[in-house]
């Protein structure tokens, strides 16, 4: 079963380089320092950021920078099959570790020595591209919390279909067992890759095509995230809507 039909459309009617609709809402929780809700297609993620605050674990203090602590969990009802362990399994630990590495590169950690920033991601509904959606939601939550970052992190997953055509922002039906998938997160522009994660085998000629397509799609995601953050800041400050571009 191929991802693309013979007319060049995917199963949900998209072109190969089209991303799904992004709906988001910042400031979902009032008790958290920053929070965000993000829908990327049918993948729905809630993210909350606490901190920078004093580190409760004395053994993990760094005197020159702050510590990023990420936790990822999937709700039991997020996929078609009910899961028994929403957090703590091998995949969740791996996702949390990857997100920590992304935001250690993105956040200016030297501004908060001896501190800790906690990022909690909860996947409410899973429809493919879970890691990329969580990274995007965490970016929005960090912006809502006012944590200084080098740039907006935009993450996109890309798959290589039969014939070597790259399809970005894969859905759950496209994440088949043998389809090679690449998750890329870029920082300020597409030449600063802070996360690259490959699943399944891919030929090296196709890798270049898939990676380039993913980096280009991350620019589209970044523009959506910029628009969301700009409108949130405008509504918070009470400015007019025509000043969105200044953000």
């Amino acid at each position: 079963m191929n991802i693309l039909s013979e007319h060049g459309f995917r199963q949900d009617g998209r072109r190969p380089n089209q991303i799904r609709n992004i709906n988001c809402k910042l400031g979902v929780y009032s008790q958290a320092d920053g929070s965000a809700y993000l829908e990327q297609g049918n993948t729905k993620v809630l993210c909350a950021v606490y901190g920078p605050h004093d580190s409760r674990q004395r053994s993990r203090i760094h005197e020159d920078r702050c510590i990023i602590n990420c936790q990822y969990s999937m709700a039991t009802f997020s996929t078609v099959e009910r899961r028994e362990r929403p957090r703590g399994d091998r995949r969740a630990v791996e996702f949390a570790r990857l997100m920590e590495k992304v935001f250690e590169s993105a956040i200016i950690t030297t501004m908060y020595p001896c501190s800790q920033i906690d990022i909690f991601c909860e996947l409410l509904q899973g429809d493919g591209s879970h890691l990329a959606t969580c990274v995007n939601a965490a970016t929005l939550a960090l912006a809502d919390a006012g944590v200084p970052v080098y740039g907006i992190v935009a993450a996109v997953s890309s798959a290589c279909s039969l014939g070597g055509v790259a399809c970005v922002d894969v859905s759950a039906r496209e994440e088949m067992a043998i389809v090679p998938r690449l998750t890329v997160a870029t920082l300020m522009n597409q030449d600063q890759i802070v996360l690259i994660e490959l699943e399944n085998r891919v030929h090296h000629q196709h890798l270049e095509v898939v990676m380039k397509s993913a980096c280009e799609a991350s620019e589209k995601v970044r523009s959506c995230l910029k628009t969301a953050i700009g409108s949130h800041i405008s509504s918070a400050l009470g400015l007019a809507s025509n000043d969105v571009n200044s953000a």
Binding site: K101, E104, S105, L182, L187, Q190, D191, Q192, I193, V194, L195, I196, E197, L198, E199, R201, V202, H203, H204, Q205, L207, E208, M211, K212, C215
Partner: peptide, 27 residues
């Protein structure tokens, strides 16, 4: 990478900021 020029996994440790050219050279 295996002998048939297939990339099996890309994995990073530490905090890296890469670009596409560097990745393709490494491959």
């Amino acid at each position: 990478v295996n002998k048939r020029h297939e990339i099996c996994t890309l994995h990073q440790t530490g905090n890296l900021v890469l670009n596409q050219d560097l990745i393709m050279q490494c491959v």
